[in-house]
Design a protein around this nucleic acid. Structure first.
Lengths: 103, 103
DNA sequence: TCCATTGTTCGAATATAATCGAACAATGGA
DNA sequence: TCCATTGTTCGATTATATTCGAACAATGGA
């Protein structure tokens, strides 16, 4: 079962994370992943966009180190890399997520 | 004495802040402003770039609500809008700044 | 084996951003 | 009044991002 490559947390730059979260669609994806607190398939996000666009955004979220995608059968299960990011950039993701849920 | 317009904190979006901080040059400007803890002129940032480029980055930082620029004579004095941003997005800017100083 | 399901990749169009020289504007001192 | 100082604005170029249809790939069930 082939898996997708992800950057090691050491290579993740803060600017990558900022960039990934500067897009409303991607911010929404991250918000939903956080709220759900479980792994979600790409298709579960009903953001009214073609799958090629969604795939593009997930690719950026992965390369920014924010999302981990595990292939299970035909589905791609996505989770937030909260613990690792919290370790490397304490408070950053947490405070962003908190701001999102209150807005 | 003519002054520059800034967005009210209510209009500032989180994506604007993320976008503004996704550029290394702008992140550096913000880091230095925070470290200095005082108002600084645009020219004080020796980032080895032409002034038109610097002006461009400051414009984006202002429109994102991150930086306030007050004109004093021929100088433009810049400060971080830390208190307002902390009020609207608690912890976000603080944690980002902390990550910067430790990196 | 066939095929529906789930996403990725490709390619091309469009949009947005970065860069920087040159011209411009405002200020204040000589 | 002249002019040096400090930044902004303009315009053009180049670079990056976004978007999405179409083709492709992998999986697993009928």
């Amino acid at each position: 079962m082939r898996q997708i490559k992800h950057p090691a947390i050491e290579q993740v730059e803060l600017t990558d994370i900022m960039y990934a979260l500067s897009d409303p669609t991607r911010l929404e994806i991250v918000a939903r992943l956080a709220k759900a607190g479980r792994k979600m398939t790409c298709g579960e996000f009903d953001l009214n966009r073609p799958k090629s666009s969604m795939s593009h955004h997930f690719k950026i979220l992965r390369s920014a180190g924010l999302v981990e995608t595990l292939i299970e059968g035909t589905e791609h299960m996505n989770t937030l890399r909260v613990a690792e990011i919290e370790q490397k950039f304490p408070g950053v993701l947490q405070s962003i997520l908190k701001s999102l849920t209150q807005a």
